[in-house]
Computed example of a mutant assay.
Amino acid sequence: MSGVPFAVHLAARDHGQMGETFPIIEEDLLTVIEARLRHLESSGRIAELQATMRDQAVKSVRQPKAVAGLGTSATPRSWLFDPSIVVENDVTDDKGALIAARGQRVNPMAFVQLTQQLVFIDGTDKTQRDWAVARFSQMKAKIIFVNGSPFDQMKPYQRRFYFDQGGQLVSRFGIRNVPAIVSGEGQMLRIAETPVKAGGA
């Protein structure tokens, strides 16, 4: 190479458009949501959605979901149940005195007796309803539905009914069939699955 300096030539060329291009648009999310809500409001959809949610809430209260897996008592079955629990935190009285320490096994029946029996029934079965109401006064027992609407039956029977939401009680007591009666027996609970015939036998 003589005295001519080495040169690098760079050239930029237009190769044309390789594909479709789009403008970048960033919308404020809150603006989009607000616009959609205004549209729903103007079209009456918000009121409709609110009414639907209200109706569903009322229905879930008036007609709770039936407890699954329960049958009808065909033969008597009775057993004792220990209601003892393991305390998760220290329990103290109003003066700060320790009643039970964390991790201690405590039987609530040692402190409070079950003053009312718990009677579990299928509230959609008129035979079970009539039997429970005839046999157990409101002072003597709480009648607890595992199916059906307790609210719809309060007026015809002129008494309060309850519902075992999610089957928490029957599951804890090991109840598999209704009617079932839970009674206090010393520091234990007596659980009896009791067959009922038409006519309240």
Rank of each mutant, 00 (worst) to 15 (best):
T92A: 10
A7K: 12
Q104G: 12
L80C: 04
Q17K: 10
V86Y: 08
V8P: 01
A66Q: 02
V58Y: 07
G69L: 07
R13A: 06
V106T: 07
H9F: 13
K95Y: 05
I33C: 05
T21C: 02
T52N: 15
N107Y: 03
A35Q: 11
M109E: 12
G71A: 11
D90E: 03
L80H: 12
N107E: 06
L30T: 08
A100C: 03
D55W: 03
A101F: 04
V87M: 05
F6L: 09
T31F: 03
K59H: 11
R105D: 04
A100R: 00
G16L: 03
D93I: 00
T92I: 08
I46N: 08
S43Y: 04
H15Q: 13
W79P: 01
L37R: 12
A74R: 13
Q104F: 04
P76E: 08
A51P: 01
D55H: 05
K95L: 03
A47W: 04
D82M: 07
G44K: 07
P64C: 06
R54F: 14
R38M: 08
V67N: 00
S43V: 09
P76D: 10
D28F: 02
T92R: 12
D28Y: 01
A100P: 01
R102A: 15
R102N: 04
A110M: 08
P64S: 07
A7P: 05
I24R: 07
R54C: 05
L70A: 05
Q63K: 06
Q56V: 11
V8T: 09
A66N: 03
A97E: 13
M53P: 00
S60W: 08
A110H: 13
L29H: 06
L10F: 10
S84D: 14
L29C: 05
D94K: 11
A11V: 14
A101N: 04
T92D: 02
V112S: 11
V58P: 04
R77C: 00
D14E: 14
E27I: 06
G96I: 00
I25H: 14
V8F: 09
M18F: 08
V8W: 05
G71E: 08
S73F: 03
L70R: 05
V8I: 15
R102S: 13
G19Y: 12
G19V: 07
A12E: 14
G103H: 08
P64W: 07
V91R: 06
P5I: 07
A97F: 10
V87Q: 00
L37Y: 12
F22I: 02
G71P: 10
M109K: 09
G44S: 09
S78E: 10
T52V: 12
G19L: 10
R77W: 01
R38F: 02
A101W: 03
R36Q: 13
G71Q: 08
G19W: 10
A12M: 11
P83R: 05
P83M: 04
K65H: 12
I33G: 00
H39E: 13
D93N: 13
R102P: 02
E88Q: 05
